[in-house]
């Protein structure tokens, strides 16, 4: 009986194509659509804020260099991960992340809670040559980052694009994005007065 039915749909190219689309659509619809409607998917957290323009520019370097290929930013709910890297990651922490950078491979350690753990001086030395500070490391050296100027003049466009997607940047934040970035990078100058 099923064979008889199949012999029929095998005779129609369009019918077969429609059957494929129907069979293949169910899984995605059931698993993805509710993530937007079930409130518990993303927890409420009072102290979450958007990335500052400078943070966004830095995140875009991480994206550009493909750091996700070796580093995760997702601490799983496992005892050894929590003890090694810190509290497990919550969905709300990546609510403004486009794209998410949870990663899939740890050739290097997880970076979700690395912020603030090391000094800026350490990071500069580490990026210049990782083996100067961690002799066993196999991370690439990023000396050329120090030779390359950061492009900041288009930051308002970046913020505006994010705003169009629903990230709660205000009109004012978009307008002042460049000044804001300079201010955060050089806190002892007039830019920071703002």
């Amino acid at each position: 009986m099923p064979e008889f039915f199949h012999r029929k749909i095998e005779r129609s190219a369009i019918g077969f194509a429609i059957a494929i689309i129907a069979a293949a659509s169910v899984g995605g619809i059931v698993e993805i659509a509710p993530l937007f409607t079930i409130d518990e998917t993303v927890e409420q957290a009072a102290d979450m804020r958007v990335y500052t323009p400078l943070e966004l520019a830095g995140r875009n370097i991480y994206v550009r260099e493909g750091c996700y290929a070796c580093h995760s930013q997702m601490i799983r709910t496992l005892r050894d991960e929590v003890e090694r890297y810190g509290p497990y990651s919550l969905a709300v922490e990546s609510q403004y992340d486009r794209p998410m950078l949870w990663g899939s491979k740890r050739t290097g350690p997880d970076l979700a809670r690395i912020g603030g753990k090391y000094s800026d001086f350490w990071h500069v030395a580490h990026l210049t040559n990782p083996r100067d500070v961690v002799p066993e490391s196999n991370m690439p050296a990023y000396r050329w980052l120090a030779r390359t100027a950061l492009k900041v003049d288009d930051l308002p466009l970046h913020l505006a694009a994010q705003r169009a997607l629903g990230v709660p940047y205000t009109e004012e934040m978009v307008e002042n994005a460049v000044r804001d970035a300079y201010g955060q990078a050089t806190p002892d100058t007039g830019f920071a007065a703002g």
Partner: peptide, 8 residues
């Protein structure tokens, strides 16, 4: 797609 939805 943001964050967790992007991951999925």
């Amino acid at each position: 797609w943001p964050g967790v939805q992007d991951a999925m």
